[in-house]
Amino acid sequence: MNNLRIMCSKTKNANFLETMMDSDMGNIRHISKNPATPPNKLRQIFHSEKIHHNVIQDVVKNPSFPQASINRMLEFMSQDFKELDMGYKKYSITLAMLQNPNINNKFLSYFAKSKNKEVIKSILKNPSLAVEIIEDIGESYHPEILKAVASNPKIGQCPKVLGKIMKYSEMYEPLSRNANLPVSHIRYLETYFCKHRENNAMLFANILINPNTPLEILEKYEAKKNYNVILASNPKIPEKMLAKMVKTNSVKIKSEIITNIKNVYVLLKHAQHKNIGIKTTAVLRIAQISAA
């Protein structure tokens, strides 16, 4: 991703975003995702005939997209959301719209009764979804829906549903990706992994990079250098632990640290590495963050 597109997706400068409206489609895609983009500009993108429907999906998910416009469109949508009846573009845009955090929970509650699993999965991605609706959806026994429930950041507020999901080992992998999973459940998943290592590599990796993973688990695997590349991706890994990692000669570990924005400064603070490319990349990442 070039620096200009990073600016388009991260900057809070509305004037800059307006000046970029006539630039290439790649920049427009990032402008459509930026919450700082003025509502009138999002409407302009939405109504443009030249814009691909994937960009329109980003527009309708944007929290700055006018709520009144979303409500008017949802009122005309069928509860069944039959893709063949609606046409794929309209169907995919509608699914994206259900993820907009400004949608009233009355709408979400209504659409949550749909028999279409893709509708339910989209609703579960809405950050404003009420816990009560999550609990209602959690009564399902459909594997795809339960996996989507397991990935919802509010799962910790639904103890009954979480208890049900924990009975199924096939749900452990999506649960382990959930950054808001209670610490007690992460400990359980790590214990499960130790007893069932075969075919559970992704579960283990998710545990190591989960920001809620307790320190004792991180320390347990810190000494095993093969795991350091994974640990370096954890956004809440202690600075003391990172400092040990960056003193190694592993370019791979340092490259992984660089991808983790919060850890870039630690790399420059502690690294004695002579690789100019590593340090240059870190400086560029800091410049990108500052520009945003």
Rank of each mutant, 00 (worst) to 15 (best):
D85H: 02
L17F: 02
A271K: 00
S140I: 04
E239Y: 04
P235Y: 02
D136Y: 12
A68S: 14
D58H: 03
I165A: 12
A36T: 08
N152E: 11
V149A: 10
V266R: 01
A223Q: 11
K50G: 00
E190G: 00
S255G: 09
A14E: 15
T11E: 04
K252M: 13
Y227K: 02
F81T: 03
G277M: 09
L95Y: 05
K50F: 07
G87V: 11
M97T: 13
M77T: 03
V251C: 06
N102V: 10
E190K: 02
E75C: 14
R177E: 14
N40V: 14
I145R: 03
H142G: 10
I56F: 02
E190P: 06
T19K: 13
P174H: 07
K117I: 14
M202S: 14
P35Q: 07
K147R: 11
M86Q: 09
K274Q: 14
L74D: 01
E118Q: 10
S64G: 08
V229P: 06
N206M: 06
V264Q: 05
Q79D: 15
N126G: 04
T11F: 01
H185N: 15
P214M: 09
I258A: 09
L215A: 04
E132A: 13
I257H: 08
Y227P: 01
Y91P: 00
S92R: 12
N178V: 05
L215G: 01
E256W: 04
K220Y: 02
Q157Y: 10
I209E: 08
Q272Y: 02
I123Q: 03
E49A: 14
M25A: 08
N13H: 11
Y227R: 00
T248A: 04
M7Y: 11
V149N: 07
I165C: 09
H185I: 14
I258W: 08
K236R: 13
K115Y: 13
K82I: 15
F193M: 01
Y168A: 15
N226G: 15
Q57H: 07
M97Y: 02
P174A: 10
N40R: 10
K121A: 08
F16M: 12
I70M: 07
N15D: 15
P38E: 04
H196Q: 07
K240L: 11
M21T: 00
Q272S: 13
K41Y: 13
L189K: 08
D24N: 11
A130W: 00
E198Y: 15
N27S: 15
Y192S: 08
L74V: 10
K160G: 12
A130D: 14
S32C: 13
K89V: 11
L267A: 07
I31A: 10
E18Y: 00
S64I: 00
K117M: 12
K244C: 05
Q272I: 09
P63E: 04
K164M: 08
A287Y: 10
P214K: 06
T248I: 04
I261Y: 01
N105D: 14
E219D: 13
L74T: 05
H52M: 03
K240Y: 09
S48M: 04
K269Y: 01
N100P: 03
Q99H: 07
K50N: 12
S122D: 00
S176L: 08
I51Y: 01
G138M: 06
C8W: 01
F46T: 05
E170Q: 08
N104W: 00
Q79E: 15
I93D: 00
L231A: 02
M7N: 13
L284H: 14
Q44L: 08
E216M: 10
I6N: 13
C194N: 09
K195G: 07
Y91C: 04
H30Q: 14
P63N: 06
Y168M: 14
N34E: 01
